[in-house]
Design a protein around this nucleic acid. Structure first.
Lengths: 198, 198
DNA sequence: GTCTATATTGTGATAGAC
DNA sequence: GTCTATCACAATATAGAC
């Protein structure tokens, strides 16, 4: 399998457009022809870069996950406490949604999971695990420092809080779209945090 | 437009199967042929009942929304206080997800919104507004009774709590699928409620 | 890296017989 | 209400020229 860091600039263009199309229309809502049309080339040229749709989408998700991991590392470096880190995390979702209500790529693919190639489904699972694990550590840290409700090892558990926060943010994009609302995911995040931060 | 309460039993069968297929594979993930195959008839027979896919899906969403409204009415009748009503609401999502991780129909369609016929998008918006409004009343009631954090008119507002709870539940299904987890939406609901109920 | 041409299959939809 | 036959078009994918 091709690696996202090891592709030509022409192939990168394909990945850029495919990512954007999937955040807007989903895996089952975009075609090779859509990608080609946006770039201004023809359909078979896409196949030259990525032989199958499964391969293309796998690379898109791998790169997306990589970028989110870099963002999480940046948060760790720039913010010292749990509340600031959790708000910075929500800001990532907010910026995505503010671009014409684009969804988190893996939020979209999570909904479509039953129709995805097995390899892509595996990458989606990996994305969520990375996010849930990072959030779990942040919430645990907050509980230890006393900035988040609950005691370390007590209730509500840090892993459960992480899960709920992640679900609220992913859900905020889906519901916001469904309601055709510009209400940012950050508002949902603030409501959640207002009940969880001490 | 046909009304869901005024269709033959053969057409109802079509609506049943289409609803199920959409909860599993989404609007862009099922075809007239899929519906026909599950019923055991041929594709043109589906067109006999519903001339276009847009018409079929509109009826499916209208019936789905109607059933949820009936369920909300039943909760109002069976449970007297906000905590019990909020838990009964979460149980509705749980039962759906427990059936092989089916999604809320409108959660799926919310993700796919940009690719939906305009009429269907309008029905999805209506579904979410009904749910958010009902939840808003329950949270407001809870705040007035002192069973939910915050004072009436204070912060966090009942409408924001309602929005966050709805997002957490819809997100729980999408994320649960993405992680391939059997973790029920009710667990996410309990985590949320544990921080919100007094 | 891109193109034209083509194969194959799937999709929403219609016409008309039973 | 269901069927066979058919249409127009779009989808993923391949072969081979430039």
């Amino acid at each position: 399998m091709k690696h996202f860091a090891d592709i030509t600039s022409a192939a990168e263009r394909v990945v850029d457009v495919a990512e954007d199309l999937m955040q807007q229309h989903g895996f089952n809502g975009f075609s090779y022809d859509d990608v080609a049309g946006r770039i201004g080339i023809k359909k078979p040229s896409i196949h030259h870069h990525f032989a199958t749709k499964s391969e293309l989408v796998t690379v898109v998700v791998q790169r997306y996950t990589h970028r989110v991991r870099e963002y999480l590392l940046a948060i760790d470096g720039q913010h010292g406490d749990a509340p600031a880190r959790l708000r910075a995390y929500a800001a990532m979702f907010e910026r995505t949604y503010d671009r014409e209500r684009r969804l988190c790529l893996c939020g979209m693919l999570g909904a479509e999971l039953e129709t995805l190639p097995e390899q892509v489904a595996g990458e989606v699972k990996r994305f969520f695990k990375i996010n849930a694990d990072w959030l779990g550590e942040v919430f645990a840290e907050g509980q230890a420092a006393g900035t988040v409700v609950g005691k370390p090892g007590g209730k509500p558990g840090a892993a459960n809080l992480a899960d709920a926060y992640l679900c609220a943010l992913e859900g905020a994009m889906v519901v916001g779209r469904g309601m055709r609302s510009d209400r940012s995911p950050a508002l949902v995040a603030e409501t959640f945090l207002s009940t969880v931060l001490t």
